[in-house]
Write a protein that binds this DNA or RNA. Structure first.
Lengths: 234, 234
DNA sequence: ATCGGATAGATCGTACATTATTTGTGGCAT
DNA sequence: ATGCCACAAATAATGTACGATCTATCCGAT
């Protein structure tokens, strides 16, 4: 087994429903069980997921189309390599899209929406950073409340895809205390802007929020690299 | 054969190279030979392209990941349906991305780049609308000169994908004279802004350019619809 | 050090089994 | 006679198996 082969060992529970291989591989990429740049051999994956090679190949093709997997002719598939440039590219796009989605949300927001946002934010604050995983879920939910309302499904889906990628990356690194505090403050600011119908203000906060999130991830990636490439957290 | 089945008849030349089925189907979608919402039966496609079902299935999965094809479980694949909302969604994203890409281009542009842009524009004007197909190619090339220089491959690739989709749609409708004149003017304005290092001006022109293009396509779609759905141009 | 064969693995093809959906049919009750 | 439900056949997607072929990579012989 070479340096970065597939590392799935547990033969996951057999699947019955069609199309599930795709979801399982996708989930394993997003959750980090399949590391960036890990080689994806169809035979190994088929064995790991308890299917034949054909569904695996189709799943990989779909993931390729979505950008989660890169394939070279006759050289097989790999999980997409994630470096600083990759994160920066995605963040730059989000800095454009998220403020636009937010601006529109402000124009249609209801009291009930704001109440939901505040409830989500309260959940986050109640958690108080005790569980990074759960925190990520709640944070995603907070923003989802805003973006899922938008009529532009393409933009919302794009956000979601980027979000999942970033979540996969973030999971591999710790979130600094200062960043976590900033997240809470920015959320509060955002709610305040929305409440007073300040679309531009909300958009500006979101832009700052996304950019800060990206900068933090890139910094953490740099730290990890300087500490030497490692397979597992020390 | 039901109302909207696959309409490819000519068995295209046999393919030898791997991965070509994908490109051929993609090209047939983009070129309009496979109409929006056309059903894509793997057996038919396999016959049409002279291969077996397996490569076709994988190609469809990849196209699904890229958004050119939609699939329902156990119900097969269709070319993505294209309506006004679809175009509007894509255009809204491009209105955000293209100005950003342009802004950066202005900051790194060289005299040689400007010369290339002017040459491309001269080609377009020399053509003088005599060939709509060729015009589209040249127009794409013009913008590609700007966007391909950008370091953000994600954003540039996204533009390219959207561009191909829009090209597929545009091909089905005529471009009005007034729109064609506007395109030329906007290109000239854009070059002027770039030449004087006016990043904001260039971004504004591009935003207007994209929005105008989108509006025109949507209008043409509306016209076509009011004239009654038709399979072939009268 | 370079060449050439051996091997691993990807790609593609064929054939067939399984499963889901659609469609058609017939009986039954109203 | 009309409408509705159950069941069966047809259609097509999905999954399995296996073999052929091609490419890249590794390794040993020159």
């Amino acid at each position: 087994m070479s340096e970065n082969d597939v590392i799935l060992t547990a033969p996951e529970p057999a699947l019955d429903q069609p199309g599930k291989v795709y979801e399982m591989i996708r989930e394993d990429i997003i959750s980090g069980r399949l590391e960036p740049s890990a080689r994806l051999k169809v035979a190994d994956l088929a064995a790991a997921y308890g299917t034949s090679t054909n569904p695996v190949r189709e799943a990989l093709q779909q993931l390729r189309g979505e950008g989660f997997v890169v394939m070279e002719a006759n050289r097989g598939a790999r999980v997409v390599a994630i470096d600083e440039a990759f994160v920066r590219d995605i963040i730059e796009i989000e800095v454009l899209i998220e403020p636009a989605l937010t601006r529109w949300f402000v124009s249609i927001v209801t009291d009930a929406d704001i109440a939901e946002l505040e409830a989500a934010q309260a959940d986050i604050e109640a958690l108080n950073f005790s569980d990074a995983q759960r925190h990520g879920q709640l944070d995603t939910r907070f923003h989802q409340l805003i973006y899922d309302r938008h009529y532009n499904r393409h933009a919302a889906d794009l956000w979601w895809k980027h979000r999942e990628i970033l979540r996969a990356i973030s999971r591999r690194f710790p979130t600094s205390l200062s960043r976590r505090v900033a997240v809470l403050n920015e959320h509060r600011e955002l709610i305040a802007c929305i409440r007073r119908q300040d679309a531009e203000g909300a958009a500006a906060v979101v832009a700052r929020h996304v950019e800060g999130s990206g900068r933090h991830i890139i910094e953490q990636m740099g730290v990890a690299k300087r500490n030497g490439p490692r397979k597992r957290p020390a």
